[in-house]
Design a protein around this nucleic acid. Structure first.
Length: 160
DNA sequence: CTTCTAACA
DNA sequence: TGTTAGCA
């Protein structure tokens, strides 16, 4: 039985506000044993501790607990949070994120319905194409608007 | 000092 | 989501 398993989404997301310092390197170092508390996970992902706890509350992330009640995350949580943030940024409903994550390798274990999910993922991908096309149309409209404005011609957004 | 939960803005 | 309170 070959189970459907999508290696890694490896979604890139803009890091930092104003500073473009990070180049996303998708190196999967299987260094087992690296654990961290919420503070470090927060630093390494850019997600606030508040958000991390919220993601966990939504069932998107799991953690162990230390003796003092502190959350302890596996280093794989970094990739998971990155993926969650990227997915949320893209407008994915958290309900879908919850079901897709196990299929990305960013969070396990893999469910049995990964294949079924791919269809919805494909639909969302197609919707992105549509949105991208509309975005380009709007951008071109703005370009034309700007050009006409400089010429002192018709100053109406939709004008031809 | 860090984290936790809960609650309010 | 941020932030704050009041505890461990």
């Amino acid at each position: 039985m070959m189970k459907t398993f999508i290696p890694f989404l490896s979604l890139r997301r803009p890091r930092g506000r104003g500073t473009t310092v990070n180049s996303d390197i998708n190196v999967k170092v299987k260094s087992v044993g690296e654990r961290m508390r919420i503070g470090e996970l927060s630093e390494r992902t850019g997600a606030s501790a508040r958000s991390i706890r919220y993601y966990e509350q939504l069932g998107l992330l799991t953690s162990a607990r230390l003796g003092n009640g502190y959350r302890e995350f596996d280093d794989s949580a970094v990739a998971t949070v990155d993926t969650i943030k990227a997915l949320i940024d893209l407008g994915f409903p958290t309900e879908l994120i919850q079901r897709v994550l196990p299929c990305t390798g960013d969070a396990g274990p893999a469910g049995q319905d990964c294949g079924v999910l791919m269809r919805r993922v494909a639909e969302i991908r197609d919707e992105m194409d549509a949105k991208a096309a509309r975005l380009i149309e709007t951008r071109d409209a703005l370009t034309g608007f700007l050009a006409r404005a400089e010429t002192g011609a018709s100053v109406q957004l939709g004008a031809a």
